[in-house]
Computed example of a mutant assay.
Amino acid sequence: MSRSTRRPVFVSVALAAALALAGCGSGQSSSPERAGEQGVHGSTDQDGSNGAGTTAEADGQVPSVEAVEPQLPVTFTGDGGVEIEVTSLDRVLVLDDATMEIMQALGHADLIGITPDTSLIEDVAAQAEERITTAGRGSLTVEGVVALEPTLVIGTSMRRHAEVIAGLQAAGIPATLIDSSQEAPDKIRKTAELLGVPESGEQLAAQVQEQFNQAETTLAGIQERPRVMILSSSGAGDSGDTTAAGEETPAHQVIVGAGGLNTGAESGLDRYQSITAEGLVAAAPEVIVVAASEIDDLGGEEGIWEQVDGLSGTPAAATGSLVVMDDMQLKGGAVSAGLGILALQAQLHPGA
């Protein structure tokens, strides 16, 4: 199927407060790609129906460094404000994909002992000695984690993980929080410090920051900020509702870094929250962005416009402006974040 060569017309539309809010969540995956030249538009068939979207790709590789031996013990203060001492990395429980990606890039995926039973970087998660259920209310408990005998537990959600991490700390288990909402270079440095390889963390963070800086330089002098909405089939608990990304999400940072305006954040959405048909129309996004693992759940690249209630009434639908992105590049907020910014920027601002 051919893609149109014209750019969508970006117009500023005031956002009405018609978003229905509930729940939060995210999902992830990873692979480096090359940049396309076609822009964000997708295609529009002669009968006016929207065609397939565009896959965002970027020049470059996911950053990594050579592994060095961790220096223990480590005294570390997490984003929850509690100081812990790490004396062993023999059985590390990692609660999210972003941390796993960072550990892999540091050359220490072998330290990951326990992971969630579902992951979008399965090649890394599968190396763990044990897989556990972490999704769903009550599935992750202090007692259950203690029984696993981890030597370190790393959580990243200040909402979903905080209570368990606090309970583990009270039980004498080295456990800490590294807030997922902060920028990728900061998460990388903190994770590396926690693992006893701070210099490697500085090197890795510098590579990711260089990609951030490259995108910022490209945007110099560009005033246009396309109105973007990140749609997801996950989040909002088990409701099954379509959600949109607001602030406090790695996806928001990717949109802004790429030179877009996140209409979810503009509306005041917090993390990933349910959105109604009326909310979508009021938000008037000119570009829709979806993670590759979720596009089929939302109807596929051609069916999304009709399956997601309200989407057909947006400027994005009129031009078929759909961008499908690698999960970790869009939502991971870790080592692939810089590459994700460059990939999306190539679509929002082709030729810049």
Rank of each mutant, 00 (worst) to 15 (best):
S2G: 09
R7W: 03
S12K: 14
L15N: 12
A18C: 07
A20N: 15
S31Q: 06
E33L: 11
A35H: 03
V40Y: 06
V40G: 05
T44C: 00
Q46R: 09
G53F: 01
T55I: 06
L72I: 09
E83Q: 15
E83P: 04
E83K: 14
T99R: 07
M100K: 10
D117V: 03
D117N: 15
T118A: 03
D123E: 13
A128C: 11
L140M: 15
T141Y: 10
R159H: 13
A162Y: 04
V164E: 00
G167Y: 05
A170I: 02
P174R: 11
Q182W: 02
Q182E: 06
P185I: 02
D186K: 13
T191W: 03
P198N: 12
S200K: 03
E202P: 00
Q214K: 12
L219I: 00
P226L: 09
P226I: 09
S233R: 06
T243K: 04
E247T: 14
T249V: 02
P250N: 13
A251Q: 15
V254K: 15
I255L: 08
A258D: 06
N262W: 02
G264K: 09
S267V: 12
V289W: 05
I295F: 05
D297N: 13
Q307T: 12
V308H: 10
G320L: 08
V324Y: 06
M325K: 13
D327V: 07
G332P: 01
G333A: 07
Q345T: 07
P350Q: 03
A352E: 12
